[in-house]
Design a protein around this nucleic acid. Structure first.
Lengths: 209, 209
DNA sequence: GCCATTGTAGGGGTATTCCCTGATTATATT
DNA sequence: AATATAATCAGGGAATACCCCTACAATGGC
């Protein structure tokens, strides 16, 4: 937990996507008063063009915009497996839109006029959430990187090891010598950096779920 | 997966909570056409009175009702750690209510008039979801039951075993003989029913998260 | 042809786990 | 007082895992 804080996170940024320049400006200004870094885009398209999966922070997006709407932007981000919380802003009461946004995984949905406090609270909580998600994801990514260097055979052996089988059983099942299993097994431990069977099991479970 | 289906599930029931008798009747009738068992309540209070945590299925609740509203019912169920999906029904477009319902974890939010198909699709998908949640929960419960029979010492030893330490290290750390650790360890395996270290790790991880 | 990688296998040794029997002490329950 | 449970420790032995070494065949790239 404590170690994860000073890990590979770029500083969190709030990405403001709104076609109305004055709305963008006032949002960015408001965020700046709380020392929150923001970055503004005038359309969903221009945001998506620049978007990088490594970005850290959250997104503030207006529903009604020329071109792609806020909901379509959300869709596209979901398709790209973005895990960044999205806060949807809207000027008009529209239940179906609100429901769709929430079901698409919006972190929050604010109707104008909203108070500065409402917005800031929502943003801060979204940033906090993103930090947690991001930490969990970087652990997963580290595990995945460790596993992708394994050869097919090593992977096969690893799965059986994690399933709790002994080297002897694994050898019999794969039609190879127990000795060979030993070697694959030790390579697995070496490549994954796991110092114990428990760690190896943890790594594998992290990627199954 | 296949084994979980014929497990301790009571048959799934859709709990209909609505103060309007004709609405209740038409919902129950509609559900019956798809062979879905339903049970109707005229108020949040009467539903909560009968509610049992073992119930399996989902809840269809109207927002506007005399006494506790649908949202308050949702609150109360959350407080009681209910994991049953809640589908909120409403007659009037009201964004804040819809947002609140979704943020409180509603599975869906339907505005009248909704089509029969919309409702049935939502219900069926909620029931499917509940089945998954319920299976996952019963696994967790089984693991918890296994662990709560452990003595303090056994629990202590188990944590260290799962942390990947050897019996020797555990003995040193707890100031007891390696032999004694062996015994606690084997009791842990026996009581939890784990047939390998991997299984034990799985069980523990299931309850940490 | 040479070299790196991968998969295979054995010898030999040490460490660890796992299972058996047997025992002592304390505490709580009956 | 007798019984049960929990926690402690010991010896011995079988099975397993882990680590060192050497070795060979196939594969593909330089």
């Amino acid at each position: 937990m404590s170690a994860a804080d000073h890990e590979g996170h770029d500083k969190q940024t709030v990405y403001v996507v709104d076609d109305d320049p004055s709305a963008r400006d006032s949002l960015c200004w408001l965020l700046a008063t709380e020392d929150i870094v923001s970055s503004a885009y005038e359309s969903a398209e221009s945001f998506l063009e620049h978007w990088r999966s490594e970005w850290s922070g959250c997104i503030l997006v207006d529903v009604r915009m020329p071109g792609k709407s806020g909901l379509q932007l959300q869709d596209e981000l979901n398709a790209r497996s973005s895990l960044m919380p999205v806060i949807v802003l809207t000027g008009h009461a529209d239940v179906p839109v609100a429901i769709r946004a929430m079901k698409q995984g919006a972190y929050d949905f604010l109707e104008k006029p909203y108070s500065d406090d409402e917005l800031l609270n929502s943003v801060k909580s979204a940033l906090q959430r993103e930090r947690e998600i991001s930490n969990a994801e970087s652990e997963k990514a580290r595990a995945a990187r460790a596993l992708e260097n394994l050869t097919e055979r090593e992977n096969e052996v690893m799965r059986l090891v994690v399933a709790g089988k002994t080297n002897k059983l694994i050898g019999a099942q794969l039609g190879i010598s127990e000795k060979t299993v030993e070697i694959h097994r030790s390579r697995v431990m070496e490549k994954t950096g796991a110092s114990s069977l428990s760690e190896l099991v943890r790594i594998c479970l992290l990627l199954e779920a």
